[in-house]
Design a binder for these strands. Structure first.
Lengths: 230, 230
DNA sequence: TTGACTTAGTGAATTAATGCACTAAGCCCT
DNA sequence: AGGGCTTAGTGCATTAATTCACTAAGTCAA
């Protein structure tokens, strides 16, 4: 959780920028040109002061008395998040989830084309899924170099996930999105984000349980935190 | 972000309990009987004081000088998270992702069996995927009642996601896991957690970008926060 | 041009989360 | 039985995040 130069943007704010961006895309799609912090706050479900503070980390891009321009602010957020370019993705693990993600629109449409998928199972290597042929995880180093891949997505079994991470690190990848319910061990120079569906459900279950115990109502799950390994 | 009675456990701690639980399962699988807060902290990649504090919210279940018992603590965490029972799940949206999740081991194995999958597309309704027949989203109310469903998972397109959420709420569901990159509007009595893969990638891209700008090293993504709508 | 109104930007207070460092307990060895 | 060792539990200082409430700038109408 450290940076060197450039404005230091709080982690919590960085995690919200993609959400603002997505809302701005919707606004643009409906031909909205301007918006106020109040409006964006309502759409994002957060406090207006938080919106203004978050956006102020990017610079002073609003106009007092008026608001923010959709296209201009979109540009600024994308610049800050490094979204002025595409980042190629490799999926490690060609199971159900891996193949579904390889086909998943959401990746490409947000600027993260899945350009390769690999597995360690000889039975899967060579198969084709959504215009990609499953490669051998042992070739990862070459694939990453040849395809100019920046991000690795791990969709292997839990048992295989650490080996997958090791292969990615070995191949020079420094950003990993991990779907396996495992706390990966990686060099501190590698960014790892975990998406553990079980964790999400268990958090929901906590609040569901609470509802039953307290006789419903007034119990509400926070939206924040997919919580804290590493 | 509110509760009524019972120990109030900080949100950040609740989000970590499932991770501890998963590690305890691994320990049990390797016949480990006891562990110290230091050991769990190392496995979870967090501070040991944080582990002790988190566990202390459950009660005083450790033994000084000794540590915690794996089975006993597992039981306590499960009790707290409401995992002493199963919670039935319905998937709304029988696309690639929805079908992959319906087959996904991780749900059942963590106590969240997917007992139904529905869609609004007549072409998909009636198809069979992994022993489930795709139902009609309009029958959701009956399905939820008959199958005793507690949790809804939205894997529709962005465009259809709000309608899906409305259907779930209408059917009496109070816990929603949303994969669509949309900030859903729901009554405050409903818990929503968002898993937006695009957001995750964009956060990674921020740090990847930072590495390029600062000449690599010493930049590290935080693990926390899948960030804050609602 | 002036004055009413809107809204971004931000200092400062508040609240939440973290992590240090100490205290309290229990084990084990002699 | 006692002393040393280990480790849970926790008060307190620190840090991070949030929110309030004010200030600074701009628009617009008359």
């Amino acid at each position: 959780m450290t940076q060197l130069q450039r404005r230091k943007i709080p982690d919590a704010a960085i995690a919200r920028l993609p959400i603002y961006l997505q809302i701005l895309n919707n606004l643009a799609a409906t031909n909205v040109l301007r918006f106020s912090s109040d409006e964006l706050a309502a759409l994002a479900g957060v406090n207006a002061a938080k919106v203004r503070k978050d956006l102020s980390y990017l610079g002073s891009y609003g106009t007092r008395g008026v608001g923010y321009e959709v296209t201009y602010l979109t540009h600024q957020i994308k610049r800050e998040l490094g979204l002025m370019r595409e980042w190629n993705v490799v999926v490690v693990g060609a199971g159900n989830l891996g193949c579904a993600l390889a086909k998943f629109d959401g990746f490409l449409s947000r600027g993260f084309p899945v350009v390769a998928i690999v597995d360690n199972d000889p039975k899967k290597i060579g198969r084709t899924t959504s215009s990609l042929t499953v490669g051998d995880v042992n070739d990862l180093k070459n694939i990453v170099r040849d395809e100019k891949i920046s991000i690795g997505v791990i969709t292997t079994s839990s048992a295989a996930s650490q080996a997958a991470a090791d292969s990615l690190v070995e191949a020079g990848i420094t950003s990993i999105l991990n779907f396996a319910p495992v706390v990966l061990s990686t060099p501190s120079s590698v960014s790892v984000r975990n998406v553990d569906l079980g964790v999400e459900l268990q958090i929901l279950s906590y609040f569901e349980q609470m509802r039953l115990e307290t006789g419903s109502k007034s119990v509400n799950a926070p939206q924040l935190n997919t919580a804290g390994a590493r």
